[in-house]
């Protein structure tokens, strides 16, 4: 069967491929930014590219389980790598905002407190922090069943990430709404009610 053949193929690809592949975009964008390849406002562009890739990677981690459940295709072994890279891109996005964009310390704190879309983005980052720190075998062993529970924080983090995007744009724009829609569908697929409905 096609799915089995696909899974055999996927088993042959080591998980580090994900780390290697996603360690390319960040330095590439930085290089483009330094050489004029990101247009006339490279700071904004770099910030947006990093943030969008972070959200895409976060969504990828949420795709793994429903994809296996509904199609049998198994990306499970790549999930940790996708999650860790998602965190790294959120962190880089945050660093570009802090160091290159806002620059001014007092304004950074004021922005986090006063501006809902920044508060929300920051909240998403804080939710991902313990997940990144426990993305190793030792932590999985140490936490046991609590590990699975803890890592459900990825769900609210993804919602906050998408909301951060929806909220920061001006006017009604399609792209962030599509991201939000995908996140909500992926989370809905996890609810018992939806699963029971789909099983009928």
């Amino acid at each position: 069967m096609l799915v089995d053949r696909l899974n055999v193929g996927l088993r042959r690809i080591p998980a580090w491929v994900v780390y290697v592949a996603f360690s390319i975009p960040a330095p590439w964008w930085l290089y483009l930014g330094l050489t004029g390849g990101l247009g006339v406002e490279p700071i904004e562009r770099l910030e947006h590219e990093l943030g969008k890739l972070a959200l895409q990677l976060l969504i990828a981690t949420l795709v793994v389980t429903p994809l296996r459940r509904f199609s049998g295709v198994n990306f499970q072994k790549f999930r940790r790598a996708l999650g860790v890279m998602a965190f790294i891109y959120v962190l880089l996005h945050l660093l570009v905002w802090l160091v290159l964009d806002v620059q001014i310390l007092s304004q950074i704190w004021a922005d986090i407190i006063k501006r809902p879309y920044i508060t929300i983005g920051m909240g998403g980052f804080l939710l991902l922090l313990p997940l990144a720190l426990t993305s190793n075998n030792a932590a999985v062993r140490w936490l046991g069943p609590r590990w699975r529970k803890l890592h459900k924080l990825a769900y609210p983090a993804a919602i906050l990430g998408a909301l951060h995007f929806v909220w920061l744009v001006k006017g009604i724009q399609l792209e962030p709404l599509i991201y939000m829609g995908i996140v909500l569908i992926l989370l809905a697929l996890r609810s018992k009610w939806v699963q029971r409905y789909l099983a009928r």
């Binding site: 330094l34 406002e41 770099l46 290159l100 964009d101 001014i104 922005d111 501006r115 879309y117």
Partner: peptide, 22 residues
């Protein structure tokens, strides 16, 4: 007077590259 979603105290002039100061 700040915009509710961002401060208006400073600005960044376009075209100053990756290390533009506000």
């Amino acid at each position: 007077v700040d915009h509710p979603r961002w401060s208006q105290a400073t600005e960044r002039k376009v075209g100053q590259g990756l290390f533009a100061r506000r």
